[in-house]
């Protein structure tokens, strides 16, 4: 924290202003402070307006909704009266994001540990840049690559990795075999995992770098190997930071739009529902994106805005939870 704000400038009346030449600069100070405070206020207003507008525009449709908004899988916002529920969207969104998180976090922690604890510094910096570059790839390109290049390799009906999972775990409904090739939640999760990998890695790296030198050296002095040092001093110190990183990654995955939209195939009807990760589906974001051209009546638009509102609330909660872990640990 800088404390510059507390050291107020010397009273201009006592020392004649040297540089400004004329006047005391008091009014300039006031204007400037109002302007910067105003920008801060604008940011607050923007977030509040986002919630308020989504709520305002979705409430009329929600009031007309013929089915339970939370528990129904029906999606017919154009019907009269409209009938729409988010159960199926919520399932696919949460399933794909949580699977992505389960795949991304171990790899991210491994990368972060390797870069901060094992690799020599002159190698770690450029390698870190390369991992960061993953974050610079636009999501539509992840979508194209995932659907047309990665998909046939890992998620097609006769692809090796998918067959292996189906053979080993197929008796669990979550992994039961389906005929959906490529456009399944499994492929979407893998691509999401790759997309959130750089952010989880970057934050984990930052945290691991802050482990006090003394903790590491104490462990080494006791004769611990590199790995034992990591286990007893680096990981316990970094755990809250890794949890925060995972939450932020989860927030990213929940709201990812175009990559998921390109990859997932939509089931012909929502009644046609399957728990399996090898089935298609739609997330909140992909549902909205797929129907962006159909915002014709306020009633229909309201249904999609209601889905967006739920997404807003969910990501807000996840991100707020991430901050709780940071603040509990002091400053990261």
């Amino acid at each position: 924290m800088t404390t510059a704000a507390t050291s107020s400038p010397p009273s201009p009346a006592a020392t004649p202003s040297l540089i400004s030449g004329r006047g005391t600069g008091r009014s300039g100070d006031r204007i400037f402070s109002v302007l910067t405070r105003g920008s801060g206020a604008l940011v607050v207003v923007l977030v509040v307006l986002t919630g308020a507008f989504l709520l305002w525009k979705s409430v009329p449709s929600l009031l007309d909704d013929d089915v339970n908004f939370i528990t129904s899988r029906v999606w017919q916002p154009a019907a009269n009266p409209p009938a729409f529920g988010i159960a199926a969207l919520l399932y696919t969104t949460v399933l794909s994001s949580v699977l992505a998180l389960l795949m991304a976090v171990p790899v991210s922690v491994g990368v972060a540990l390797f870069l901060t604890q094992c690799a020599p510094r002159r190698l770690a910096t450029p390698l870190g840049y390369l991992v960061d570059l993953l974050a610079a790839v636009p999501s539509i390109i992840y979508g194209l690559w995932g659907a047309f290049v990665l998909g046939p390799v890992i998620a097609g009906t006769d692809s090796g990795p998918r067959r292996a999972i189906e053979d080993a775990l197929g008796w669990i409904p979550l992994f039961s075999s389906t005929s959906v090739a490529r456009g399944n939640v499994f492929l979407a999760s893998v691509v999401l995992a790759i997309m959130i990998l750089p952010i989880v890695t970057a934050i984990s790296r930052e945290v691991f770098l802050q482990v006090p030198r003394a903790n590491i050296e104490a462990a080494l002095a006791l004769g611990a190997t590199r790995w034992e040092t990591i286990r007893v001093s680096v990981l316990p110190f970094g755990k809250p930071g890794v949890i925060t990183a995972s939450m932020l990654g989860l927030g990213r995955a929940l709201g990812e739009t175009i990559a998921v939209t390109i990859i997932l195939s939509q089931p012909s009807s929502l009644e046609d529902f399957n728990f399996s990760v090898f089935y298609g589906g739609e997330t909140f974001a992909s549902k909205i994106a797929n129907n962006a051209s159909e915002f014709s009546t306020p009633q229909k638009t309201g249904a999609y805005i209601a889905a967006g509102l739920v997404l807003f609330v969910v990501t807000f909660l996840v991100n707020a939870l991430a901050r709780v872990f940071i603040s509990r640990r002091g400053d990261v």
Partner: peptide, 23 residues
């Protein structure tokens, strides 16, 4: 303000787009 900047960081782009659409 700090908190709201954090919230903005986590806002999905489709939600930002829906807000501007509503407005």
């Amino acid at each position: 303000v700090t908190f709201m900047v954090d919230v903005l960081t986590g806002i999905p782009s489709i939600v930002a787009a829906l807000f501007i659409y509503a407005l």
